[in-house]
Simulated scan of single mutants.
Amino acid sequence: MARTTRERKARGASLVGRRYQVQIGAVAHGGHCVGRIAELGDRVAFVRHALPGELVEIQITEGTEGDRFLRADAVQVLTPSADRVDAPCLVAGPGGCGGCDFQHVELGAQRRLKADVVREQLVRLGGFDPADPLVADLVVQPVPGDQDGLRWRTRVEYARTPDGHQGMRAHRSRRVVPVDDCLIAAPDARVASQSRGTVIIERVRAAAGERAFEVEGDGFWQVHPGAPTALVDQVTAYAEVRPGDRVVDLYSGVGLFSGFLGAQAGASGAVTLVEGSRSACGHARENLADLDRVRVLTGSVDEVLGAGTVSGADVVVLDPPREGAKRAVVEAVAALDPRTVVYVACDPAALARDLKIFGELGWRVTDLASFDLFPMTHHVECVVRLTRSGSDQG
């Protein structure tokens, strides 16, 4: 769902509705591209529905004369990019549904744009060298389970128009756009409001084996059908858990990663999960009941680690929410002195900031993979392996 606009103090007369002709520059994080408005002293505008290199007419959707930057829609394309296609959804354009950012972009080009965004965030916020092969050679990989970027979302949540029609919210707005058929929703997608209070069984077949997981109908689970397998395969490959290892799984949810990593650690190993949701912790205990030496701790990750409840680890896996782990958690993870850290990230900006902190603490990124788990949107998933600087791991 689109986030709502924050109230803020106006800085001069509103520019909303004004139109300008703009040459579009690079893609930016958030589902838009950068344009500069010559008539406004090269003021930056973040433009949706555009592509790098295009000449477009934009219409301002947010901003005043005193703002440092503006937001806009490309309402007319004067010089189209070769990567532009007709959006399959009729409400995906300016003024329509805010759920998809890139329906006007050829699918392979979407992934190239997402790779550009990840690179830019790693360089600008993470301090990475753009010539580093981890950055320069980064590719966003497709995963099986969608239909040319459509019909992948296994759970949807609809809003309602004032007259009761189902729909989706417009970009950065509470306004509801009627939507009869969301094209990124799977044919058998669950409606979140109808799934509350139910328990769903999800089965994951990965290279490390096959497991079943129970999860709340409206609890967290990856919504792309290929995502759990792709992430488990990458996380287990990077973690390289050995028999007897102590594994710590932070922001663990219902235990997706722990189920496979704990089995690899074996009876002589141990796995500790930390998760803030009580219901998810309850399901995790059920999901991992077949494993020896499993400990599930309920609470915020920063508070649990800060309390010293977890004293050491060989492998740490963390899959924080969109805002990232932040300094206190990163420092606590480093203090556990693991052999390997595997970081799963759904926001490249938060990832880059956290990786910079890891770097300050003597850690280095040895491997990075990116996956297109949210086609037609700007979202991208990354999995990173870190080891101590000077280590021969990885």
Score class of each variant (00 low, 15 high):
Met1Phe: 03
Arg3Gln: 13
Lys9Ala: 13
Lys9Gly: 05
Ala10Leu: 13
Arg11Cys: 00
Gly17Trp: 12
Arg18Val: 02
Val22Tyr: 14
Gln23Pro: 12
Val27Trp: 09
His29Pro: 11
Gly31Asp: 06
Gly31Gln: 00
Leu40Val: 08
Pro52Arg: 12
Gly53Gln: 10
Glu54Gly: 00
Glu54Tyr: 03
Val56Ala: 07
Glu57Gly: 05
Gly63Glu: 11
Gly66Glu: 10
Gly66Ala: 09
Arg68Leu: 10
Leu70Asn: 07
Arg71Trp: 02
Val77Asp: 02
Asp83Gly: 06
Arg84His: 08
Arg84Trp: 10
Val85Tyr: 10
Asp86Arg: 15
Ala92His: 09
Gly93Tyr: 01
Pro94Ala: 04
Gly99Glu: 12
Gln103Gly: 06
His104Ala: 02
Gln110Leu: 08
Arg112His: 07
Arg112Val: 12
Asp116Cys: 12
Asp116His: 14
Gln121Pro: 03
Leu122Thr: 09
Val123Pro: 10
Arg124Leu: 11
Gly126Pro: 07
Asp129Ala: 05
Ala136Asn: 07
Ala136Tyr: 13
Ala136Ser: 14
Asp137Gln: 14
Leu138Asp: 14
Val140Trp: 07
Val140Tyr: 00
Val140Phe: 04
Gly145Asn: 09
Gly145Val: 07
Gly145Cys: 11
Asp146Met: 03
Thr154Ser: 14
Arg155Cys: 04
Tyr158Asn: 05
Thr161Val: 00
Pro162Tyr: 03
Gly164Glu: 04
Gly167Lys: 03
Ala170Cys: 01
Val179Pro: 05
Asp180Cys: 02
Asp181Trp: 01
Ile184Phe: 00
Pro187Glu: 15
Asp188Pro: 06
Val191Lys: 13
Val191Phe: 11
Ala192Gln: 10
Gly197Asp: 13
Thr198Ser: 15
Val199Lys: 02
Arg205Pro: 01
Ala206Ile: 08
Ala208Gln: 12
Arg211Ile: 00
Phe213Tyr: 15
Glu214Trp: 14
Gly219Ala: 08
Gln222Arg: 06
Gln222Phe: 06
Gly226Arg: 05
Pro243Asp: 15
Gly244Lys: 07
Arg246Met: 11
Leu250His: 02
Gly255His: 05
Gly262Ser: 05
Ala263Met: 04
Ala265Trp: 08
Gly266Glu: 12
Ala267Arg: 06
Ala270Glu: 15
Val271Glu: 14
Val274Arg: 04
Gly276Arg: 05
Cys281Phe: 11
Leu288Pro: 14
Ala289Met: 07
Asp290Tyr: 12
Leu291Ile: 14
Asp292Lys: 05
Gly299His: 02
Ser300Val: 09
Val301Ile: 02
Asp302Lys: 13
Val304Asp: 04
Ala307Asp: 12
Gly312Ser: 14
Gly312Thr: 10
Gly312Leu: 01
Ala313Gln: 08
Val316Trp: 01
Val317Asn: 01
Leu318Met: 14
Arg322Ser: 12
Lys326Ser: 14
Lys326Asp: 14
Val329Gln: 07
Val333His: 05
Val341His: 05
Val342Tyr: 12
Val344Gly: 06
Ala345Met: 01
Gly362Leu: 11
Leu368Ser: 08
Asp372Ile: 10
Val380Cys: 04
Val383Ala: 13
Arg385Ser: 10
Arg385His: 10
Arg385Ala: 13
Ser391Tyr: 03
Asp392Arg: 00
